[in-house]
């Protein structure tokens, strides 16, 4: 049940992201909701589970709108693991810590994606515009992610509870 709910969450986020996320644009850049969701999963879930979540979130994005199949999947796995590694060492309940780690995570994820895409032929000049873009997306993701964290933790707790209940009652 928990995994079905995660799947629905990934699909909903993807639909919302492809619909253009109305109104949320910062310096002409929109938030990367799937990356944000993966980073939050990295904070909330155990590392292995977060990595699997990141893989399927990235794969869904690659399958439906991506240009390189499994590139997002690979980047998201790495970012989920890295975010989990950082979150376990710092006090993630603090909104500033959450904001900064989401900001850094998004920036790293974007750089990794651009490097990956460049090594497979989709190169982009590393101009000031590109770096401004990375910074803008990271700030938007940081703000949004820091706000969404608590509701997502509550949702995950409820899902884990119902999942356990379902297992025990058969």
């Amino acid at each position: 049940m928990k995994y079905v709910a995660y799947g629905v969450l990934i699909l909903l986020t993807l639909v919302l992201q492809t619909a253009g996320v109305p109104g949320i644009v910062f310096f002409g850049f929109k938030p990367e909701l799937m990356l944000m969701l993966t980073l939050l999963a990295g904070m909330i879930m155990p590392p292995a589970e977060a990595a699997v979540f990141g893989f399927f979130a990235g794969l869904a994005q690659d399958l439906i709108v991506g240009r390189f199949l499994t590139l997002h999947a690979g980047v998201f796995v790495l970012m989920a693991l890295a975010e989990g590694f950082v979150a376990r060492r710092f006090y993630r309940e603090n909104i500033l810590v959450r904001f900064s780690s989401l900001l850094l995570g998004t920036a790293m994820g974007e750089v990794l994606y651009l490097l990956g895409a460049a090594s497979f032929g989709l190169s982009r000049p590393w101009t000031l515009g590109t770096w401004t873009g990375i910074l803008a997306v990271s700030v938007v993701n940081g703000f949004l992610g820091a706000l969404v964290y608590r509701p997502l933790v509550r949702l995950n707790k409820r899902l884990v509870y119902y999942d356990e209940l379902l297992k025990r009652t058969g």
Binding site: L14, Q17, T18, A19, G20, F29, K30, E32, L33, M34, Q61, V65, G66, R67, E110, Y113, L114, A117, R124, G133, V137
Partner: peptide, 12 residues
């Protein structure tokens, strides 16, 4: 739909 990535300009 539109590309979810900021680095690709595509529409669906």
């Amino acid at each position: 739909g539109r590309s979810p990535s900021n680095w690709e300009s595509t529409i669906i």
